[in-house]
Design a protein around this nucleic acid. Sequence first.
DNA 1: CCAGACGTTGTT
DNA 2: GTCTGG
DNA 3: CCAGACGTTGTT
DNA 4: GTCTGG
Length: 220
Amino acid sequence: MCGRYTLTSDADEVVEVFDVPPLAFAYRPRYNIAPGQEAPVVARDRGGRRMGLMRWGLVPAWADEESGGFINARSESVARTPSFRDAFRRRRCLVPADGFYEWRRDAHARTPFHYRPTAGGLLSFAGIWERWKRPGQEVRYGFAILTTAANGDVAPVHHRMPVVVAPDRREAWLDAGTPAEVLRTLLVPAPDGSFAARRVSTRVNSPEVDDATLLEAAEG
DNA sequence: CCAGACGTTGTT
DNA sequence: GTCTGG
DNA sequence: CCAGACGTTGTT
DNA sequence: GTCTGG
């Protein structure tokens, strides 16, 4: 699945690659984005694109209790499940990233790995977003990252991975008019060989740690 | 009709 | 909100 | 995803 | 064990 990820590029590069107006929030490179935190997402806004912060964790609009929300949505069922269907149909977003973490679990340990694109550069995860409001509280926005089966790169570590939207499909993903059968063709594992893994320090386990040394290969 | 569920991950 | 189960 | 907490009484 | 917070 995808429970932590990285966005280490600088603001200028992100703005250029995602073709959005200048950022209206305080951007900083991130080495350990965790559920519950605010993170940049790209969505349609009045016909154009905009990048803004949303909380990682989607709370369905009908839920009156604020929980942490759902950080992932299964791509295999997202179009049908009541919690996600409406967001999938009308509120899709791109989640800028340049890598993600997965933990390999065995009987004795949980070992973190960082995956980054073999070709380098920025990625888009496929996201959906939702807004919700409780009486007396401000409107909140949250997003979830779609997951799919692990490809050959990830499978040795974990059986799920985030859906990656190829650069030439980003516009289709954001376009509310894209037919469902076209969207379905995007919800597939990334090609084998497109990601490279490195084992990293368990310091990444703590969501409070967020610095460049997290990306260094662990010894051993 | 109303009541209750609605989700992901992993694990056993 | 919207669907399923009773 | 992992880390860390996990309680009681009364009162406003 | 299970929930909340980040």
